[in-house]
Design a protein around this nucleic acid. Structure first.
Lengths: 344, 344
DNA sequence: AGGTTATCTGCAATCGTTATCAGTAATGAT
DNA sequence: ATCATTACTGATAACGATTGCAGATAACCT
């Protein structure tokens, strides 16, 4: 049974517990060598719980994400992990797109962690005071809540990214440009829709309202939304899909229906994927550095932790860029969506 | 400052701290209603640290994986998360394929968590006694250490999976079958190599030794290994790649060199990928349920936690299956690897 | 009424560590 | 030799909750 305490070590060496404690905190004490040996011999490990109780610190930072199997969030976590340092650890909470789990998790977190890095499910569901009374440093990543300005955040330039995507499709000659968007209640969902509309407006392009399909950032959602677009009276010639999972769904839908990309329809996604080049055709996307977002969020958190509660919130924005591959092309005159496959 | 303790609540209601404590643990006490109100009014949250110290339990289970951005491990984590229950949480440690981080993490974990679910980096690097003296329940997932029989584990039938892959290639008529394997120091690396050799042996197929390329489960490693195979005197007509990341690397290599799949070379991977059908050609793989592995591991852990330390270790094995898509075909006579592209 | 349970209560010890405080020995300066 | 300074040391009080113990009150039985 490994219930050896600091007292056991002290007795074994013949000094007081205070001395052992001081040795552990790096002070120079008398019998350093004997203490070290005793610790190894007895296999003593300081109790984290007791330390927490005394110091009020846990050395743990929580990361709350909606879906860890989304490569984007996995990269965020990896980035955060890389910046966490030796003296702290990461507690992961996967809320699985469930608001209940998110709330429960948050309340459980109190006292177990020193701070929370989180991508909230939606912007408005949490009551504004919820986080304020939380009493822990918070850094938002990728998404914020309504009163998000009060806390530090690391976001992407979603509006710009969506605008670049839209402008790019316009520059290829498209005007029937649809978008498969995320929930408008989320930061990226809302902002990317904004960028899309902004891009269309500045080119004075009018689109039917059903060209904007609000979906849910899931693959199944992307699949359904794409099917819906294909079945409309005036199918679009190009589609901007607002995240990686939905892009995969949309591509599946196109494949199942035998619609060829980019001959019959152009596709541009948001968020790069490891395998984007392996797809047929290679996928054109708006890319950003997820790992960087994660590490920046962690750095911000550590700064807050070290500087104390007085530090003002800081907002960081990571850049986006167009990665041109093969899934977009100029529209063809009078193209028909359900025509037979064309040659390459 | 949210430093309200159980004493504050007790004073506010006019009872002793013991009563509040009992109320919190579900006993019936006198002024239940007032206590509940006081807790809400004061925004009291029990200190997790103090509870841990008293009870020796943390309510946290650690999951240690080599690389969270690998979709396979992300799914394991998700599966575990889904089975963790309401009263516990998950602490994620991403060791990033670094043995140093793994060791440090493990030693830090003691006292912070009630148990550890882990995919160890290699089978033999940890001294056999390391985990025994760890004093915490351990469940291995996907990989084990040398003395792994002493702890519960959830593994895949790696030998069978690799054998199925090899047999499949043989049944298509291949005999020049290469393998890009993982490190032989890891469980899946070793076992999949075993299955590959077993398959070849039972078909009495002899291969040059360089047909087995030991790599490192990374995309870059897969890329390099594939290049090396292509440059050999007798390039293989089929390759079994031992994990998802290396498969992606191998496909990238083939794409960069203009080698067409499956016309010039057949590829079969281990572990399915969300986008396997979207690749050109759709990728044939050996698949298994990663989520299930994660949830089984967590269930095993919870069982150990509830039953006490006396429970004997339990070993579980999840099944594998062949998912036939388009990346494997019969070999063509006298095919030349570096020939020009062929028509479809 | 008297005695026996049953039910609830507060006191105080305890978990393992750190921080404070006063105390002691050794060193150096005068 | 005396005093100030340095460099440690041990005893002890916290940190915030849980729990065994004994005492108090009420309910129940004969």
């Amino acid at each position: 049974m490994s219930t050896v305490t600091i007292t056991d070590v002290a007795k074994h060496v013949g000094v007081s517990v205070a001395t052992i404690s001081r040795y552990l905190s790096g002070f120079t004490v008398r019998n350093q060598e004997q203490i070290r040996e005793a610790i190894i011999e007895l296999n003593y490990r300081p109790s984290a719980a007791a330390r927490n109780l005394k110091s009020g610190r846990t050395g743990i930072i929580a990361i709350v994400v909606p879906d860890i199997t989304n490569p984007f969030f996995a990269s965020i976590v990896e980035g955060a992990e890389s910046a966490v340092g030796d003296d702290r650890m990461i507690l992961l909470v996967n809320t699985g797109d469930s608001r209940g789990r998110e709330e429960k998790a948050l309340s459980q977190l109190f006292g177990r962690v020193d701070g929370v890095i989180m991508a909230p499910l939606t912007e408005d569901e949490q009551s504004p005071s919820f986080f304020s009374q939380f009493g822990l440093p918070i850094v938002f990543v990728d998404r914020v809540t309504k009163d998000g300005e009060r806390f530090s955040s690391v976001l992407t330039d979603n509006v710009k990214g969506a605008e670049i995507a839209t402008d790019y499709l316009i520059s290829l000659g498209h005007s029937k440009i649809a978008m498969i968007g995320g929930p408008l209640s989320t930061t990226p969902g809302k902002r990317r829709a904004d960028g899309y509309h902004k891009g269309l407006r500045s080119a004075a392009i009018d689109i039917p309202t059903y060209y904007f399909a609000e979906s849910d950032f899931s693959e199944a959602g992307g699949y359904a939304a794409m099917c819906q677009l294909l079945e409309s009276d005036q199918p679009p010639t190009a589609v901007f899909v607002a995240n990686n999972l939905m892009t995969m769904g949309a591509l599946h839908a196109l494949r199942d229906r035998g619609v060829s990309v980019p001959d019959q329809i152009s596709i541009i996604g948001f968020d790069d994927l490891e395998f984007a080049e392996l797809i047929n055709p290679p996928l054109t996307v708006i890319a950003r550095d997820a790992r960087l977002q994660g590490s920046q969020a962690m750095e911000l958190m550590i700064k807050h932790l070290n500087d104390g509660a007085s530090t003002p919130p800081q907002h960081s924005m990571v850049d986006v860029q167009l990665v041109e591959r093969g899934s977009c092309a100029a529209p063809r005159e009078s193209q028909k969506i359900r025509s037979n496959k064309t040659d390459r």
